[in-house]
Simulated scan of single mutants.
Amino acid sequence: MGTTRTAIIGIGLILLIAFGKTALVSSFFLDELLRTGPVLLLLYLTFTILTGFAVFALYHFFGNLASQPQGVNARSGPRHEPGKENLVEMHARNWGLSKAETEVAILVVKGFSNAEIAKMRGSVLSTVKTQLGSIYQKSGLENRYQLIAFITDEVCDAAKAERNELQSKHRNALLRVLASPNPEENAANVPAGPNAATLSLKAGR
């Protein structure tokens, strides 16, 4: 219903804009001898087609921007920061999800309801439900709650692994500085970390 109403309004606007352009051109750029019915009709059809193409292109351009989940194309934060979008996309390739199914899965993990997802993607609710059913079948998960829990656990594990890796690198850097002949001079080369205060105390001894 909403899609049909939008289409009717869009067609009405196209016809109205084409009529306005035809009136302007015929009033200011055409001689009175050329203001005949066939010429005006040809102008009107030409402006209708051109306006229709322009509106169609703009509609799809802004529609695609609005339907893209936040974080799929533009991500903030550190380069290697684990995120739900990254993990969903990674598992989507393993599960064999389509692009649309991947975007729906991301929105589910972000906590949006089926109705909200349908509105954001400009689709009907039944399409979203069908896509979710396909996602669950391909992934082996039973429902949205298992999908959310699965990705959340992956995020926590990835964050923990990254934190352990950073701590290991910092600890190795501290050991190299403390083992050097001049620890006080080399202390400044160690990146800030949880053991920076300990390094300063040991280096000063």
Rank of each mutant, 00 (worst) to 15 (best):
G2V: 07
T3I: 06
T3P: 02
T6H: 04
I8K: 04
I9K: 08
I9L: 11
G10W: 02
I14G: 03
I14A: 08
L16Y: 13
A18F: 08
F19V: 13
G20D: 01
L24I: 06
F28W: 05
F28Y: 05
F29H: 11
D31Y: 12
E32N: 10
E32C: 06
V39P: 02
L41Y: 12
L45F: 13
T48A: 08
I49V: 15
T51H: 07
T51P: 07
T51N: 09
T51F: 10
F56E: 13
H60L: 15
F62N: 11
L65V: 05
Q68P: 03
Q68C: 08
P69G: 07
V72M: 09
V72Q: 07
G77T: 15
E81I: 11
G83C: 14
G83T: 15
N86S: 15
L87C: 02
L87M: 04
E89S: 15
H91R: 14
N94K: 14
L97D: 00
L97H: 02
S98D: 07
S98H: 05
K99L: 02
K99V: 04
A100S: 09
E101S: 07
T102E: 05
I106G: 06
V108M: 08
K110R: 09
K110C: 04
F112E: 08
A115F: 00
E116A: 12
I117G: 00
A118I: 01
R121T: 09
G122T: 01
G122C: 01
V124Q: 12
L125C: 03
S126L: 00
T130M: 10
Q131N: 12
Q131L: 14
I135K: 14
Q137V: 13
K138Y: 10
S139F: 14
G140C: 05
N143T: 01
Y145N: 14
Y145G: 10
Y145Q: 15
L147H: 10
F150T: 12
I151Q: 00
E154P: 04
V155L: 01
C156A: 10
C156I: 10
E162C: 01
E162L: 04
N164A: 07
Q167L: 09
Q167R: 11
S168N: 15
K169N: 10
A173E: 07
L175S: 05
L175T: 03
A179G: 01
P181G: 06
N182D: 03
E184Q: 11
A187M: 13
A187W: 11
N189I: 02
V190I: 06
P194G: 03
N195E: 11
N195S: 07
A196S: 14
A196L: 11
T198C: 09
T198S: 13
L201P: 00
L201W: 08
L201N: 05
L201A: 08
A203N: 03
G204L: 08
R205V: 11
